[in-house]
């Protein structure tokens, strides 16, 4: 049973930050609720206030500029799957997003919500690691950029401050020729293991110039494996 809670519906990042600062640990951001409401229904957590940030305009845009793609934190998984820009420029991200959980989760769940809940058995963080993504966080009167490597602190824990919200994700377009893949395995709905790879080849496409490897789901946080990246073919395969 879901216990009673108050619902706040701020219309700006500053207003959200003020609410979080004022109510502290008794308030929690709601950005889709696909994880949060399950936990609340089970009675695992309770918050007196939910702060619905889905009314903040402009945080769900997907745009491209100067070799980067910017994804607003409130973009739903479904929106990412259907984005023609992403399909063309980052098909591996679309592939990963199209296979997240189930269609009901993808319809309302957001990329920002997924990252901030920091559930270990989640897909996006692992892929964002090899893509070299940076996350944008904001609170009243300040903004900062966080490399995705530093964002996840532990299971269900991120480096965000209590009155800070995630506003977007910036992904650099991979150099050409590059290939990106994310594969996962599991017999439950949540994956047991996720692996992401980005390889960049030289212009003759005969050797690997750079390889990036990340693993997720198996442990508390997704992580890059730089030791494995330094190996070269044929040791790699």
């Amino acid at each position: 049973m879901l216990r009673r809670f108050r619902l706040e519906e701020p219309e700006s990042v500053d207003e959200t930050s003020d609410l979080l600062a004022r109510y502290g640990e008794s308030a929690k951001i709601y950005a889709g609720g696909t994880e949060l409401l399950l936990a609340m229904k089970e009675g695992l957590v309770h918050y007196e206030r939910l702060v619905n940030i889905k009314k903040i305009r402009s945080l769900d845009q997907i745009t491209t500029e100067n070799g980067f793609i910017h994804i607003g934190a409130l973009s739903t998984h479904r929106k990412l799957v259907e984005s023609s820009l992403l399909r063309e420029r980052l098909p591996a991200l679309v592939g990963m997003e199209s296979d997240i959980a189930n269609i009901r989760v993808r319809e309302v769940g957001t990329l920002g919500g997924n990252l901030c809940f920091a559930e270990p058995h989640a897909d996006p963080g692992t892929l964002l690691l090899v893509l070299g993504a940076r996350l944008f966080a904001a609170k009243r009167s300040s903004n900062r950029e966080i490399p995705v490597e530093q964002f996840f602190v532990d299971a269900y824990e991120t480096c965000l401050e209590p009155d800070e919200i995630l506003t977007g994700v910036r992904v650099p377009l991979p150099p050409r020729p590059s290939g990106v893949a994310y594969l996962k395995f599991g017999y439950l709905e949540r994956p047991s293991v996720g692996v992401a790879v980005r390889v960049t080849l030289d212009q003759t496409r005969e050797s690997i110039v750079e390889a990036r490897v990340a693993v997720g789901c198996a442990g508390p946080v997704p992580r890059r494996v730089e030791e494995a990246e330094r190996l070269r073919q044929p040791v790699l395969l």
Binding site: A92, A181, Y182, L183, V195, V197, V199, V213, A228, L237
Partner: peptide, 12 residues
């Protein structure tokens, strides 16, 4: 998975 992901990344 890593082996398969490398193969797929190079393929695509």
């Amino acid at each position: 998975l890593l082996k398969r992901a490398f193969q797929r990344a190079q393929e695509y």
